[in-house]
Design a protein around this nucleic acid. Structure first.
Length: 242
DNA sequence: AACTCTCCCAACCGCCCTCCG
DNA sequence: TCGGAGGGCGGTTGGGAGAGT
């Protein structure tokens, strides 16, 4: 059993935040920085519990949050990472730094689940035209065991990253050179792959490669490359989880 | 115009993890 | 080593908005 809820004391306000409350919270965090949420209600006079303050900040008020429709590239990243990692929304969100875990979770539950079910239904009745561009962005180098193994195996993730990195190494190397300068490119690439692997395997936020990964994933040519690869070696890709 | 239905998303709840005394 | 406290995460819900009748 966990601890009793922190918000059950009398006088704690629930429900939607008002603009006034938002301003108070923002002002406080601008002054003190995020963290020590327990002290926020006390120091600000907000009649909210600490969790509510943290949630409001991380999911709504935090700078850099992107709102509105998800791009096809973002969808592809979510679908692929969900297949790999399961419902670990916080980890998935770390690869889409402009989106919150709550947003991603909501988007998955309201849009992508349905979309993938429909997609799976249509894949069950295959058309002669082959794969379409709406399929999830696939990643190579993974075994085809059961869904649970697939989602939980760090070996698989490691292999996947290895294969993935190898398959796109030329492009990434070029990108690294562009970002880091000619002399630091190769070293930068090696550091990037190490960091990315570590980030995946530890379930923590990857550091350096985020911008790299993002810039690569957001390029439409990437999706095209993947489509070509799928057509050339369709058996090399993991099956969708549902 | 009024009512019902459906969808979406902000927020809550309960549990787990980590830290610290 | 143990237990309490705080932070974090994933699942779920409730209410508002828009669509449909």
């Amino acid at each position: 059993m966990g601890r009793p809820p922190c918000c059950d004391s009398a006088g704690i306000k629930k429900g939607p935040w008002t603009p006034e409350e938002d301003i108070i919270l923002i002002s406080y965090i601008q002054e003190r920085g995020p963290g020590n949420w327990r002290s926020v209600p006390t120091n600000t006079g907000l009649m909210r519990c600490s969790k509510s303050c943290r949630l409001r900040w991380t999911n709504y008020l935090r700078p850099g949050i992107r709102r509105g429709n998800f791009t096809p590239q973002e969808e592809a990243v979510i679908i692929q990472l969900q297949g790999l990692l399961g419902n670990r929304w916080a980890v998935i969100a770390s690869y889409l730094p402009q989106r919150t875990d709550n947003d991603i979770k909501n988007y998955w539950n309201t849009h992508l689940k349905k979309k993938l079910k429909q997609l799976h239904a249509s894949v069950a009745a295959p058309s002669p035209s082959g794969p379409t561009s709406n399929l999830p962005l696939p990643l190579p180098g993974i075994n085809h065991g059961g869904a649970a193994d697939y989602a939980s195996s760090t070996d698989n993730i490691s292999r996947l990253l290895e294969g993935w990195m190898n398959s796109c190494k030329p492009r990434l190397t070029t990108e690294c050179k562009r970002l880091a300068g000619e002399d630091g490119g190769a070293a930068g690439f090696e550091r990037s792959t190490d960091n990315l692997s570590a980030g995946f395997l530890d379930g923590q936020q990857a550091q350096l490669p985020l911008s790299l990964l993002e810039s690569w994933l957001l390029e439409e040519t990437a999706a095209k490359q993947v489509e070509e690869l799928m057509e050339n070696s369709p058996d090399a890709w993991p099956r969708p989880l549902f």
